[in-house]
Design a protein around this nucleic acid. Structure first.
Lengths: 305, 305
DNA sequence: TGAATAGTGTCTCTTAGACAGTATGGC
DNA sequence: GCCATACTGTCTAAGAGACACTATTCA
């Protein structure tokens, strides 16, 4: 990857390729507000002067409200019920353009490796975690998005990380976690990209099994509902949610129960892989992370080679 | 882009980038079977020996049935009603690998140009047409897909071309149009890519306005239904289709009528841009071809830059 | 008049959502 | 007993699909 002598020469060459990841992780779902020991959200993490107010406070000074169509600046609704929130790790830029702003984790693409490999590598180097789910989001290549940097085609992936996994994140230099509804100033078009990823996830959760990957192998329907609520950013009606989950045939009871407090214990369920014989088994190829180059259901393609 | 001396060196370099297009065009919807003067489908077009049987005949020797879950090897159903079919232009490969097989049109990516530009250019050079709709499909980058060629990342777009536009295609060397249900042997993973594009289009037509771009500015509901039928590959119930279209508020009557035969004339309608005040106005940013780098609703992204 | 397409009415089935009410645990 | 959560029952409204039926044109 060599850089040409002048700009007109450079324009004729193909742009560089990078791979980036929107990493969506479940926040803690237990009701005590642990804002101060959330993954690195509040710890001064680095060398550069802190140009932002504390991101996890309820005031939104120096943070950007992502317009996701849902009104929740805090993680609790007015009636006092907790709505779990999604969190996202970002990397502070240490060079121009957008020096000091926050950006999605990313890396270069190696010739002999798959795109998923590059995405997982970017994810690991930022969080030292493995994704529960990884899928291509979109490829951005408009020349105007470089803002003075080198022209760059960014192949963007999005990843999901479960609550238990997110607890052993790696606290790295210039890496912080932000709630998706309180993002800091972002470099390039990364704000649009995150919004787009959220739209995509909320859409995908409707017809796929991604939510079941964010809970353990056995789970209560409340726990599963919490995953949906975190992704939607709003509370769901518990009775209707139960009916919907059971009617899909995607989950089945284990027979066990789980007591977690001064109330009736909840039945445990497990995920049932779709055999195609289920009742409303919409076609949902699981497509594990790093599996192959064939996307799951609704995405897009066309290729010269 | 220079080629390195040996393989191990090459593997460390970033792969080449190309842009390809799945071009979906409406076939003729009038009922006379014009298989023999369809765009270039049957004319011997080239220098290379013709390794395929006539692709537009009803026998499928040397053609590949794309498994789209719909049983229609011919364009007519058993009751005699015509089902319009989608057609797709392919380019015959004139070098290894996959010499003689058919492939999606594509081209290189120039640094100073957008991805859409490259896709439109590939489309123009093959068909001399402008797309009614152009959208990114997916980016393929698995090393295994090169099959002996150079490693290649393919950013794939899909395009829609209306029936009237498709009539003045350009008959080019080594370019032919095939019905999507009778494809010839395809190079690389292009068969998967086309199947994926069809899935995507059938999905997208549900919640977007792409169908209205394939008819004129004024159209009857029968004409619009024909577009849906071509994309779905099956007949639709006319009364239910009418109700559904009218209930979305996406179309409105012009007051005019169109007489086309020995039967009751049909009312003409026009497309109504969504203002957000409509009844079931699902969020559908139009996203014209070549507009910007922000995708429409359900797709995916994440980027390093 | 008949053929062919345009268009209306109506029925059923399914699903999502609202919400009242019951069940079962800890305290 | 009370409280909190788990779970059941039921009503309503909207949407998709099947399909009988009417309307309007030309030949």
């Amino acid at each position: 990857m060599h850089i040409s002598a002048n700009v007109s020469e450079r324009a004729k060459e193909p742009p560089n390729i990078g791979v980036s990841v929107v990493i969506l992780a479940l926040g803690p779902s237990d009701l005590d507000d642990r804002a101060d020991n959330l993954p690195a959200a509040n710890t001064a993490s680095g060398t550069a002067p802190d140009i932002h107010a504390t991101a996890s406070r309820s005031d939104t000074a120096n943070t950007v409200e992502v317009g996701n169509g849902i009104d929740h600046t805090a993680s609790r609704t007015s009636d006092g019920d907790a709505v779990p929130t999604l969190r996202i790790p970002l990397v502070r830029r240490i060079r121009q353009p957008f020096l000091g702003d926050w950006a999605l984790p990313g890396g270069d693409l190696q010739g002999g490796r798959s795109l998923e490999y590059a995405a997982e590598k970017a994810l690991r180097s930022t969080t030292s975690l493995h994704p529960q789910y990884l899928e291509q989001l979109y490829t951005f290549g408009d020349p105007s998005r470089s803002h003075g940097g080198l022209p760059m085609v960014s192949i963007v992936y999005w990843a999901l990380i479960g609550e238990t996994e997110a607890k052993d994140f790696r606290e790295a230099q210039n890496v912080r976690w932000f709630p998706v509804n309180q993002l800091p100033p972002l470099a390039f078009d990364h704000k649009d990209i995150i919004e787009y990823a959220l739209t995509r996830v909320r859409n995908k959760i409707e017809y796929s099994d991604i939510a079941t990957r964010l809970v353990g192998s056995e789970f209560t329907l409340s726990q599963l509902r919490n995953v949906y609520e975190a992704i939607y950013g709003r509370k769901l009606d518990a009775p209707n949610f139960r009916r919907r989950m059971l009617s899909t045939g995607m989950v089945e009871p284990t027979g066990e129960k789980l007591a977690r407090g001064a109330h009736r214990p909840a039945c445990l369920y497990r995920y049932v892989a779709h055999t195609g014989t289920g009742k409303s088994a919409k076609s949902t190829k699981p497509a594990k992370p790093g599996s192959r180059d064939i996307p799951t259901i609704p995405t897009q393609r066309t290729a010269q080679q």
